[in-house]
C-alpha cells in the first residue's frame, strides 16, 4: 500500500463580484519553530500566556482562601487573632529562620501577580490591535455575563485596592495605628464606624474580586484544557460558590467591626 499525503486544506474561496485588484495584506509568517526553553516557548503563544494567567491566578486564589480563613480568627478574639498573625512569622521554625517562610510566600505572590498582569496586559494589547475599527452597533453580548465583561477593568481596580490594602494593614501608612501596632488594633481602628467609607471601599473591592473569580476560576480550567461540555455546569457552580464564599468571608470582618460586633 502506498502512503501519500492528503492535504487537509480544502477551503479555497473565490470572492465573487469583487475584483481582486485591491491590495491585500501579504501573508504574515509565524516565527520559526522555537527550540527555546519552556518559559519562552510558553510565552510565545496567546494560549501559553493564558496558561500563565491560569496558573498564577490559581496560586492567588489559594492564597485568598488562606487569607480569608486567617481573617475570620478575628471573631475568636484579640488573643487568637494576634497569636495567628505572629505564628505566620514563625512557620517552619526552628528548621527555618524567623519569617523565612512568610518571605518566600510574599516573593511567590509578588511574582504571581506580576506574571498574571504581564500576560493580561499583553493579551489586552493584542486584542486591541486585532480590532482597529469598532462596530457602529455595539455587538450584542449573546453570552452576557457581567463578570466576563469587567475582567480587565476589574483587575485594575483590584490592583489599586491591593496597593491601598498593603499601605493600610501591612505597612500602616494609611492606618490610624502605626505599622508596628498589634494586628487586632489595626483592624478595629481601620473599620471604626467613623471611617465607614473605608468599609464601603473594602466591600466594593472584595465584590470586584468575587466577580473576577466568578469568570476567572472556571476560565482557568478551560484554559488548562479541562473544559468539556459535560463539566461546564459543575465548573461554573464551583467558581460561583468559591467566589461567593470568599466575598462573604472577606466582607464579614470590616462590616462586623463597623457595626460594632467586633471591638
Amino acid at each position: 500500500m502506498s502512503w501519500t499525503y492528503q492535504k487537509i486544506g480544502h477551503m479555497f474561496r473565490n470572492v465573487s463580484s469583487v475584483s481582486r485588484s485591491t491590495p491585500v495584506a501579504a501573508p504574515r509568517r509565524p516565527q520559526a519553530p522555537s527550540t527555546a526553553a519552556l518559559p519562552r516557548r510558553l510565552y510565545r503563544s496567546s494560549v501559553g500566556k493564558k496558561a500563565v494567567m491560569a496558573v498564577t491566578g490559581g496560586i492567588l486564589v489559594l492564597f485568598l482562601v488562606g487569607h480569608m480563613l486567617g481573617n475570620l480568627k478575628v471573631f475568636l478574639g484579640r488573643a487568637d487573632f494576634d497569636h495567628y498573625a505572629h505564628w505566620l512569622r514563625t512557620i517552619g521554625e526552628p528548621a527555618l529562620p524567623h519569617r523565612v517562610f512568610l518571605t518566600i510566600m510574599e516573593a511567590v505572590l509578588t511574582v504571581a501577580v506580576i506574571l498574571h498582569m504581564w500576560s493580561a496586559v499583553s493579551l489586552a494589547r493584542r486584542a486591541r490591535q486585532a480590532r482597529p475599527v469598532r462596530y457602529a452597533v455595539r455587538p450584542k453580548a449573546q453570552e452576557h455575563r457581567y463578570a466576563t465583561h469587567v475582567m480587565r477593568y476589574g483587575g485594575i481596580i483590584i490592583l489599586l485596592f491591593v496597593i491601598w490594602h498593603l499601605l493600610d494593614l501591612t505597612f500602616g501608612v494609611v492606618n490610624p495605628k502605626s505599622g508596628g501596632a498589634e494586628p487586632y488594633d489595626k483592624v478595629v481602628a481601620d473599620f471604626d464606624p467613623s471611617r465607614w467609607y473605608i468599609t464601603v471601599f473594602y466591600v466594593i473591592a472584595v465584590v470586584m474580586v468575587g466577580l473576577h473569580l466568578k469568570h476567572g476560576l472556571w476560565s482557568a480550567f478551560q484554559t488548562l484544557g479541562w473544559g468539556r461540555q459535560r463539566r461546564y455546569r459543575g465548573l461554573h457552580l464551583f467558581a460561583d460558590v468559591v467566589a461567593a464564599l470568599l466575598v462573604i468571608g472577606f466582607v464579614a470582618v470590616p462590616v462586623m467591626v463597623t457595626i460594632g460586633v467586633v471591638k
Binding site: 519553530p33 503563544s45 496567546s46 480590532r131 449573546q142 466576563t148 475582567m151
Partner: peptide, 18 residues
C-alpha cells in the same frame, strides 16, 4: 496552527463564549 493564528494578528481567547 496556533503560531499561524497568532501571526495573522487575531486576538487571544478570554473564554467569553460569544
Amino acid at each position: 496552527m496556533v503560531d499561524q493564528m497568532d501571526a495573522e494578528g487575531f486576538g487571544g481567547c478570554t473564554n467569553t463564549g460569544e
